[in-house]
Simulated assay, not measured.
Amino acid sequence: MSTLVKTHFANPKLYNGFFGKEALNEFFAPAYAGSIPAVNVVESKEGFRIEVAAPGLQKSDFKLNLEKNQLTISAQKEQKEEETTEKYSRREFRYGSFQRTFNLPNSVNGEKIAATYADGILNIELPKREEAKEKPLREIEIA
């Protein structure tokens, strides 16, 4: 979600000259760009799959919780940068996080939910309960 912010600097050239436009954008930007990653939800005969686009994160940054048919996906990332030269030392700490909660249908078998993370995509497999799976057409004989 983008937010438009109108600023009223007394002398914008002073701020842009001192910080530079790129430096201001970088300073005020969140550590995890976009803060809420894009999500795809796919349904098949066997279940559902949630794909979360979250490049730059590690498997250990994620946390998945299931409570009362609500699946919560969250991640927290801490970035540290340090630059030291003869005359100065600069340190920057950035924290980024997001959280999404999905209300799961009763057809999902919560005991068999599995997740993997590879190539910047978190894949969560949500298998359907056997009784909820679509059955093939069956002709019923009349006696």
Rank of each mutant, 00 (worst) to 15 (best):
P12T: 02
P12H: 05
P12W: 03
L14V: 13
L14A: 11
N16V: 07
N16K: 13
G17Q: 03
G17K: 06
G17D: 12
E22F: 10
A23P: 05
A23N: 08
A23M: 12
N25W: 03
E26T: 14
E26K: 15
F27V: 05
F28V: 14
P30H: 04
P30N: 04
P30A: 03
P30F: 00
A31L: 08
A33Y: 08
I36N: 13
I36Q: 13
I36V: 15
P37N: 06
A38Y: 13
V39A: 09
N40K: 15
N40C: 07
V41P: 00
S44P: 06
R49F: 13
R49D: 07
I50D: 00
V52R: 03
A53R: 11
A53V: 07
A54T: 10
A54S: 10
G56R: 05
K59T: 10
S60V: 09
D61T: 02
K63D: 13
K63F: 06
N65G: 11
L66C: 04
L66M: 13
K68I: 02
N69F: 12
Q70F: 11
I73H: 04
S74Y: 04
Q76N: 14
E78F: 04
E81R: 15
E81L: 15
E81F: 15
E82G: 11
T84F: 02
T84W: 00
E86L: 15
E86F: 10
K87Y: 12
K87R: 11
R90T: 06
R91A: 09
F93C: 00
R94H: 05
G96T: 01
G96F: 01
G96D: 01
S97I: 00
S97C: 06
Q99V: 02
Q99M: 04
Q99K: 10
T101K: 05
T101P: 01
F102V: 04
L104I: 06
L104E: 05
N106H: 03
S107Q: 12
V108N: 02
G110A: 08
E111F: 11
E111M: 05
K112H: 10
K112W: 01
I113G: 08
I113H: 07
I113S: 09
T116N: 14
Y117P: 11
A118K: 15
N123D: 14
N123G: 07
E125F: 08
E125A: 13
E125S: 15
L126Q: 12
R129S: 10
E131G: 09
E131R: 09
A132I: 01
K133L: 08
E134K: 14
K135E: 13
P136E: 13
L137M: 14
R138F: 07
E139G: 10
